[in-house]
Nucleic acid binder design. Structure first.
Lengths: 234, 234
DNA sequence: GGAAAAAACTGATCTGAAACAACTATTTTT
DNA sequence: AAAAATAGTTGTTTCAGATCAGTTTTTTCC
């Protein structure tokens, strides 16, 4: 429906196929500015989009695909979050000091990412307060999520953490009780702060207990209520 | 110097004794609005300022004192951050959905907190983009800090985590190599994700190794370079 | 299509750090 | 000033979960 309307009207924007609340808050001029200062690139599965510590040159808008946002240091990895399409990434690099990227981003699947010039983005934030208010909302939403994961990883033990991540994948990422997992067991480990072996053992335990059905990459949650109880009690 | 100028001129603001970058970005009218919709309250040591889950009614400006910002659930505590004077707290509650507080705040020392009406604050964010850009900066700075702690608590072991927190206290909070700690050992535990007993043992070990000098509540860092190395190799 | 590489899995072992159990030293209360 | 409560400390025990070492399965790519 939206697409039909769009293809009929004057396309002020070839950029964003679907409307995104943040984009819609911009004026026509501002939209044109974004359009003129961004390019859409494709990344293959497993490619690195940007590296922690690098000077931030773009804001990334994930048009298609699945990526991980993570910290790496001396073979220790911590995945901060997963992101699906229609999400802005790299916002955390915007601040007054020297804006270096605080995390690395890489793809799980082939992805399309629109790279928006960060200076333009900053300029718009500084001139359009409705827009910047919306960005504040987005940032705070992400922060709340991070707090949840922080608590989970530091205060719960393996059962709870694995339940957390399975529920998260099901609810937020795949929006279905059964899904094909593009992440490896090692990635699940980086996501839950546990070793690959423990992930495997724990998942098998869940399977034996009838909580999930699992066949290599495909996973189905069978008993969500019980998973939620496990998540809650650690 | 600033104070002299201030006491001479017409005090448009009895509120903030010193200039704060965020406040200075407001217009005179906006400053008056803040002044008219905020009150300064004093809290005694150990009092709770606000509770996680409550509907957010204010933004808190810590004029004086030391507070902890934390998550609590079923006798599990996780301190997200410590905050000293001249910091804004409660910003994370600002988002479009139902804005509940994502954390609890309580005081370590007697504190003075200016409580600013959150609706007014939101209004200003929506109308003054220089201001909201600055707030984005602040939020991102805090986020970067949280990421650091997240990594520390999930990827390092006790030595590294304790070194981290000691360096943080010295650099960010007390800005001195020696300080009187208003936090208990249990609080250090909540801050580092370790048990009280482990905090005590680890601190004693650091003392025996000549890394710190310690006498109950007073602590002095003796070998910062080595602490940094411990922090790094965690 | 088959060799090589990567990922998934299993069992055995080891260890960091929590939990437990006293006990002492401080504060706070009455 | 005594009693109670809180905070700090120490030694011992226990166990969750990492590490190691190896096997099997799946994927990748000449």
């Amino acid at each position: 429906m939206n697409q039909i309307i769009e293809s009929k009207g004057i396309s002020h924007c070839s950029v964003f196929k679907y409307s995104h609340s943040w984009y819609e808050l911009l004026t026509e001029d501002e939209k044109l500015l974004i359009d003129g200062h961004s390019v859409s690139l494709t990344f293959k599965k497993g490619e690195t989009v940007c590296k922690r510590g690098a000077f931030a040159s773009h804001i990334y808008f994930l048009e298609e695909g699945l990526v991980k946002v993570y910290l790496e240091e001396r073979n220790k990895n911590l995945i901060l979050m997963l992101s699906t399409k229609n999400n802005l990434l790299g916002l955390a690099a915007i601040y007054d000091g020297n804006n270096k990227l605080p995390y690395t981003v890489s793809t799980y699947t082939n992805s399309t990412i629109r790279m928006i010039d960060i200076q333009i983005f900053r300029q718009l934030l500084k001139q359009n307060s409705e827009f910047s208010f919306h960005i504040i909302s987005l940032l705070n939403e992400k922060t709340a999520q991070i707090y949840g994961r922080f608590f989970s990883l530091t205060q719960k033990q393996l059962h709870g953490r694995l339940a957390d991540i399975l529920l998260c994948l099901s609810n937020r990422i795949f929006k279905s009780k059964s899904f094909e997992l593009p992440l490896s067991r090692a990635d699940l480990g980086d996501l839950t702060g546990m070793s690959t072996e423990s992930v495997i053992r724990m998942m098998k335990e869940f399977k034996d207990d009838g909580l999930i059905e699992m066949n290599c990459k495909s996973i189905e949650l069978l008993d969500v209520a019980r998973l939620e109880r496990i998540s809650e009690f650690g």
